[in-house]
Design a protein around this nucleic acid. Structure first.
Lengths: 222, 222, 222, 222
DNA sequence: GATGAATGAGAGTTCATTCAT
DNA sequence: CATGAATGAACTCTCATTCAT
């Protein structure tokens, strides 16, 4: 069923479809770059069309108006970031090592994909109205949550972790610690002279991993 | 007569100027509201003037162009937030209690001043070019850093805390944990159904405080 | 079919573009009118667009900003005036008659193209910054210079003219005499009651021609 | 009578009047500078007030609106130029020498007072509406006309000049020859590379003087 | 299907001018 | 007499969007 539908499309407009897909992808990528580097209001439809190498009417034809294009770009940001997460596999690591690995990965992840952070900030600045309307917004959840669930369960079973916490809450904590220094790097640099290079970021990641592990392994205060 | 008139003058702001000071303050506040709710590009000078109850030319006369006004609003955001921090005093609390208090305060602080978070996000989205140009940007540092320094020293002296960490780094960790759930509340709500009310935020603050205290009091791993 | 279509295309302007060339020309003419009748600062872009029958964005798209449009109009003024000069041919006239013809023509020329004079005045009022930047400003030189060179040479050869003078200097003298009464006609009328009609202008042109010829034919003072 | 009137003023508002006159003069001079260097539309009332060292309301109080101020500046331009002409005395020179002197003087005159030329150009660009409304516009006529009348009469009487021409017409010719090279110096420099210094201007003045004298002394063509 | 041509609506900014003290 | 404070109106320029081929 899935296959035949795709097949039909290819037959019906072989070339058109191929171009069409390439154009769509180019527009999407250009939109993602533009929105993440200029914000919603700062983004220019002209610039997106130009960078994508298509005409504006085509762009409007494919994606609707600026708002729709922004929604598509936001969705694309989530899709891309989740794809990038696939390279991480924690199943075979011991719980504490898994946490360490996860923290270090998340940190690097955010540093390497600043446009993802920019899109999230933009969307939150706008009140989240767009993300709420993404029809598959729940499927977009980090795959890391599942891995985290497994790690937490193993840690509990092996009597290494002594805290009851949901994977979501734990992810929230890890994400908090990794997000802020990247997201706010410019103001932090200006106000606190925290102008970090790769090395300092790496060290901070180690600290963060230890904080999380220390907490997970400690007994609850009596 | 002369004396009392002069006295009144001081209270009613400098005279001769129709109401210069009041106008300035009104513009600044309106700008802060507008920029934090619409971002830099989304902000409208018309709207700021209207909300401030002044004409656009007056606004331009006082603050220069939109960029200058934005810079003034950003600075005002920092000033207001630092003023609000004065209500916290940690000197008389035991180290662990002080940390707990600080975390809870910071959390509530961010929740109550969402425009501050919005301004920081906007500025980081823009690459921090404006904050770098604020002449007194270093004096803007959180007063909490000083308090934190004292708390850390006491904790060490009393053999309660066993971690070597600079106040700035510790503040970074605390701020990270408190900032992200507020800053990203809309996307978190949409993706993870993390739609918190005051109570849940309060609980999370407790968790955060415990994480930090657990780490500070634990021995370094051998 | 192909050929004839192509032929038609040339006549009907390039196709596919809705009416790009016609719009450009209309804008240029409207700009010339507006700048020459209102000066640079007094000229209104709205008015130019309206007179040209196009929208402002189109105008900006074609010509850049007001400054660029002004430069294009200035250049157009020179182009039009030089085109109009083509109707004059002096080669077959005797030297004295040629000078007479040239003076009378120049006078009438200036009177009939007052917007040319207005553009020159405007540009000189502005310090000439724009004309200096015209890339082909030297090719804009009056074709009359060449004719003048020929007339002077013949006059010398035939022992009619006895003055050594470069064509440029002679043109400067003739232009001076023809320009001022037209350029300053309003102040002259107000101060000296010199409110001339066509006839008086014609008489003055005769006087001017005689002045120039008298000088050219006279021997240098010993 | 004269003295007592002045005396009364001084008594009536000793300081006020003195300031008032100084302010008026300062405004007038500033307006002249501004209008002649920026044109009517380009001139800024703010700048005039600032350069004159007075407040804008004062300026408006003294002179009315921008139009009135422009009219006053235009009148002032004529007054100043006529005052400067007083230094020339032709009565005791032989006719040909007088003409030579007059031409050289006029040339230098225009070169040294470029703001006068700028004001005339501006006014002509505007259609002369303002000069027409100056109540004493006829008294503003060049004093040189009277001198010229005398020179022409003497030339005729002494059988040196053989042309019938009114002083006004002769002045027009001389002014034409001296005005254009100065007025249009920027475009001439750009188009014809006529970038003159003092010396070349001086030489040109000599040529002009000879042209005029040659014509005046020549017999009318038979 | 794809695009050059075109625009309505509105943005930031400035300017001559006038209150109110 | 003198001015700091204030503004309505207008200007240049831009942007998301659509027509017509």
């Amino acid at each position: 069923m899935h296959g035949s539908a795709a097949g039909r499309k290819v037959i019906r407009k072989k070339r058109g479809q191929r171009d069409s897909n390439a154009s769509r992808a180019a527009i999407l990528q250009a939109a993602l770059n533009e929105f993440s580097s200029a914000g919603y209001e700062g983004a220019r439809v002209d610039r997106i069309a130009e960078k994508a190498g298509v005409s504006k009417p085509l762009l409007y034809d494919y994606f609707g108006d600026k708002d729709d294009l922004y929604a598509a770009a936001l969705r694309e940001a989530y899709v891309q970031i989740r794809e990038a997460e696939l390279e991480l596999s924690l199943e075979e690591l011991a719980p504490r090592e898994a946490i360490h690995e996860l923290v270090v990965f998340t940190f690097r992840h955010f540093r390497r994909h600043p446009w993802f952070i920019a899109m999230l900030n933009t969307e939150n600045l706008r009140g989240g109205g767009t993300v709420t309307r993404l029809h598959d917004r729940h499927e977009i959840q980090s795959k890391l949550l599942l891995a985290l669930d497994d790690v937490l369960a193993r840690g509990k079973r092996e009597n290494i972790f002594h805290r009851d916490i949901s994977p979501v809450r734990l992810y929230l904590i890890i994400a908090s610690l990794c997000y802020f220094p990247v997201s706010n790097r410019f103001t932090l640099a200006a106000i606190f002279d925290l102008d970090w290079g790769d090395e300092e970021f790496g060290q901070h990641a180690e600290t963060v991993a230890e904080i999380v592990n220390t907490w997970l392994t400690s007994e609850r205060a009596g």
